[in-house]
């Protein structure tokens, strides 16, 4: 790699337009684009291979075609998608039932906590340990809390408290959904708090100070100033949290435990899909994987920038 082409490349980026594009197409730029496209293939191959396989008949189509080739006419079928939607449909509803409330509540609580710990005027010496506990909680391996968590939910008389629901015809297994909401909120607060805190430290202090001098209470400042300007950060946090909670298997496995439960989340059902005595039905597994991933994929395609911002901080 010599100096001259590099300089060319730099210039072509600094100025924009067609002329530079042509001028910049030297050996260095060609190699650069080849690398970038090669990596694109690397990242998309597992997904592409899964997608085409989901449209193939099993086992004939799956075993007699190349894994990344689209299904030829005689092996094409939509049957696997139908089966996957049938198997995962109720799981999708169950996942949404806890993922949406847990996302909203943990984002709100995280925003409260971040506001109380950044804009409030009290000594950093006392704040630091509390902040440290929030930050450390993000990194806790959940295995360290699983047994107490089972004990705790085993001893809480949730089923009795929720009797009206069962009378109304909701299956009793849905206590698991309530447990999942509370659990995901509790373990989601730390990351939400840290994301909001990064944002609130950049908020202009003069504005808030001025409001306080005008006699606004701490709570009023939040309601009138901080909450409204938090909207972009709420987008980031909600998207990040929704993806995390929807994708999580561990808590679902521990609190709902079997995929045959009426309250089983989609990830739990997917983990056991396409497994049978005759061997693995990969076409069905791939179709199931896409169905289960659909909500997060949609969120990612629509809000990719917010997602990137969420993971970066």
């Amino acid at each position: 790699m010599s100096d001259a082409p590099t300089t060319d490349g730099e210039q072509s980026g600094a100025l924009a337009g067609v002329r530079e594009d042509l001028a910049g197409l030297d050996g260095y730029r060609v190699a650069l684009y080849a690398a970038v496209l090669g990596l694109t293939a690397f990242y998309l191959t597992p997904i592409e291979s899964g997608l085409v396989t989901a449209f193939k008949t099993n086992p004939e189509g799956v075993s007699s075609t190349l894994p990344f080739a689209p299904p030829p006419g005689e092996f094409f079928t939509l049957e696997k998608w139908e089966t996957a939607v049938q198997a995962l449909g109720r799981g999708m509803v169950n996942s949404a039932l806890y993922a949406v409330p847990a996302t909203v509540i943990s984002a709100l609580l995280g925003s409260f906590a971040a506001y109380g710990l950044t804009q409030a005027d009290w000594r950093a010496r006392y704040k630091a340990p509390i902040l440290a506990m929030f930050v450390a909680a993000i990194f806790i391996p959940y295995q360290a809390v699983l047994v107490p968590l089972s004990q705790f939910w085993g001893s809480v008389p949730l089923a009795e408290v929720l009797t009206p629901l069962w009378v109304a015809g909701v299956p009793r297994a849905y206590t698991g959904v309530i447990e999942l909401i509370v659990t995901h909120v509790a373990y989601g607060i730390p990351i939400c708090m840290v994301l909001f805190r990064g944002y609130y430290t950049t908020v202009s202090e003069e504005m808030i100070e001025a409001a306080r001098l005008d006699g606004a209470t701490f709570a009023r400042v939040y309601r009138r100033i901080v909450f409204p300007i938090s909207t972009p950060m709420f987008a980031v946090v909600l998207i990040y949290q929704f993806t995390q909670i929807w994708n999580d298997l561990l808590f679902a496995l521990i609190l709902v435990s079997t995929e045959s439960s009426p309250a089983a989340p989609v990830v739990l059902i997917l983990a056991g899909l396409g497994e049978s005595q005759e061997g693995q039905d990969f076409a069905l597994r791939m179709a199931g994987a896409f169905v289960a991933a659909l909500p997060t994929l949609i969120v990612y395609v629509l809000f990719g920038d917010e997602f990137a911002e969420g993971v970066a901080s």
Binding site: P46, P67, L270, Q280, R285, M286, A292
Partner: peptide
Amino acid sequence: SLSFVVTAQFWLW
């Protein structure tokens, strides 16, 4: 953005 459960299916294949 994908779940471990989903990527595990892809990589098994």
